[in-house]
């Protein structure tokens, strides 16, 4: 069971997220609503990466690939005048699934360091592909419009978009929770714990891990779909390996192998960036060493440091 401290944190966190649009409108501080929306999008990406890192033992250093794939699906379709949100969403999901399937198929044949290097290299290939596609803006990126859904649900309205993002965050957490504790999740976690033993007791683990890889890619692709809508701008930078590194940091900071940890990790990281970059543009010179120290001394992450047992449930 989850500890009281954790339940309290979640409850407060959720209420704050729900209350942000009316509060920021009342205070005339729209900037913070945008920031919160960004945090939630990266929270979705981090939650999906944690399915691989924390539960599947798959150290993917290329999660930005799906962020880029999902956002380019929106921008490229919009470029050809297709602004229907359902179609854009379907293509974002389908394209991320396809990319994850190909990358996963190549990477999962290997192990350890190879896995890290190949996910990194293949994602960087997509980044270079984005840069070389002059038609879609090349390295300058491309402007795009918000997706169109129903008449009564105008995504052009920032508040509507905000709640859509919140909806997807809650949905991705719920899906992840069910996944982790299902039979499928047992196979994934078992293979992280001891893959040889899994095979010895009769699990063909490759196909399960590949499926998990694709699911995580799709969830992150949805984050990309939302990101394109939030920024109304898509650039190859979304696929740069620094982005992959950042999502990884969010998972680490929040607590690897916990369900809600990555959400807090994403919030903490983006908040830190926001605050400290106000003081100095050279904030990386401080953050770099902090990251090293975090790895050395704070592996459990903020969520993991709260009281309570660390199991699939929380």
């Amino acid at each position: 069971m989850m500890s009281r401290a954790k339940i309290l944190c979640l409850l407060i966190g959720f209420l704050v997220l729900v209350a942000i649009p009316p509060a920021t409108t009342a205070l005339d501080a729209d900037f913070y609503m945008g920031l919160a929306a960004r945090m939630m999008i990266f929270a979705i990406a981090a939650v999906s990466l944690d399915l691989l890192l924390g539960y599947g033992g798959m150290v993917s250093f290329g999660h930005a690939a799906y962020l880029g794939t999902g956002s380019y699906a929106v921008a490229i379709l919009a470029f050809y005048g297709i602004t229907d949100g359902f179609l854009q969403f379907a293509v974002a999901v389908g394209a991320s699934a396809l990319v994850a399937l190909i990358i996963g198929f190549i990477c999962l044949r290997t192990k350890g360091v190879y896995f890290i290097m190949i996910t990194l290299a293949l994602t960087q290939m997509l980044y270079f592909l984005g840069i070389s596609l002059e038609e879609y803006g090349g390295d300058d990126g491309i402007n795009t419009d918000r997706s169109e859904f129903f008449e009564w649900f105008d995504l052009g309205d920032d508040t509507n978009l905000y709640y859509l993002i919140l909806f997807f965050l809650v949905l991705s957490l719920w899906i992840s929770w069910r996944l982790i504790n299902s039979r499928f999740g047992m196979v994934i976690r078992g293979s992280q714990s001891n893959d040889d033993r899994m095979q010895a007791i009769g699990f063909p683990t490759f196909r399960y891990k590949l499926t998990m890889f694709v699911i995580a890619g799709v969830i992150c692709g949805v984050a990309g779909f939302l990101l394109a809508n939030l920024t109304e701008f898509v650039t190859p930078e979304y696929m740069h390996w620094f982005r992959s590194g950042e999502i990884m940091i969010m998972v680490l900071v929040g607590g690897m192998g916990t369900l809600f940890g990555p959400v807090f990790g994403a919030i903490a990281y983006l908040l830190f960036e926001e605050v400290i970059s106000d003081f100095t543009e050279h904030w990386m010179i401080i953050f770099g060493p902090i990251l090293v120290l975090l790895v050395l001394f704070a592996r459990k992450g903020v969520w993991g440091m709260l009281p309570g047992r660390e199991r699939g449930d929380d």
């Binding site: 890192l53 150290v59 250093f61 350890g112 360091v113 890290i116 590194g245 990884m248 940091i249 680490l252 690897m256 990386m284 010179i285 953050f287 770099g288 060493p289 902090i290 990251l291 090293v292 975090l294 790895v295 050395l296 592996r299």
Partner: peptide, 14 residues
């Protein structure tokens, strides 16, 4: 490897 990746990523930023 995960720790090594993140720590040396911190070094790059630095």
């Amino acid at each position: 490897h995960m720790d090594q990746v993140l720590a040396t990523f911190g070094l790059i930023l630095f």
